[in-house]
């Protein structure tokens, strides 16, 4: 009995493991797969080119993409094509990360956010503006008015692999 009490006493003076969520949040692991983020380039242009490969790779059919054509006056992403609609149904998503793997421009990344709760099924559909990351400092929001002939490549130039 003394042994048991000793354990209790020892634990009383130890640091508690409970974290005061939501005031305090535990950092996630580096490979954690949370809610998706649509990335931007440094200049603010969206990386997503609306190719739908994420939707094709998705085993849960959670992603819906529609695309349209960029113009230099109204440019969302480099190259010709951008996603005019981008929706992920978080109720369907199984956070497998296949979309990340399929993306040819590394536009979609499973982020750190695990706080997904909805009171309505419709809220589970995350639209493009909810998924897009904020414009980085120094960048401009999309659509941008860009100089003609500058952003002609949709898929960033990939040099012959070095590593």
């Amino acid at each position: 009995m003394i042994k048991g009490l000793l354990t209790t006493l020892r634990e009383m003076f130890q640091q508690p493991v409970t974290i005061q969520y939501p005031e305090v949040k535990r950092p996630v692991r580096t490979r954690f797969k949370g809610r998706h983020v649509l990335k931007r380039y440094e200049n603010g242009l969206e990386k997503c080119i609306g190719c739908s490969l994420c939707a094709a790779a998705c085993p849960a059919d959670a992603i819906f993409v529609e695309s349209a054509e960029n113009t230099d006056e109204e440019r969302y992403s480099p190259g010709e094509r951008y996603a005019s609609t981008y929706e992920i149904n978080m109720l369907r998503c199984i956070f497998c990360g296949f979309c990340e793997d399929a993306c040819p421009t590394e536009a979609i990344v499973l982020g750190d956010n695990y706080e997904l709760s909805f009171t309505d099924r419709h809220q589970s559909i995350y639209t493009k503006d909810m998924l897009l990351e904020p414009v980085p400092p120094g960048g401009k929001p999309t659509p941008q008015n860009t100089e003609p002939g500058k952003y002609t490549r949709s898929v960033p130039v990939m040099q012959d692999p070095q590593d």
């Binding site: 080119i49 609306g50 190719c51 190259g79 040819p104 421009t105 949709s154 898929v155």
Partner: peptide, 10 residues
């Protein structure tokens, strides 16, 4: 060009 991801024929 290898832009199959945005090509309508892809």
């Amino acid at each position: 060009p290898l832009d199959c991801p945005i090509c309508d024929k892809g």
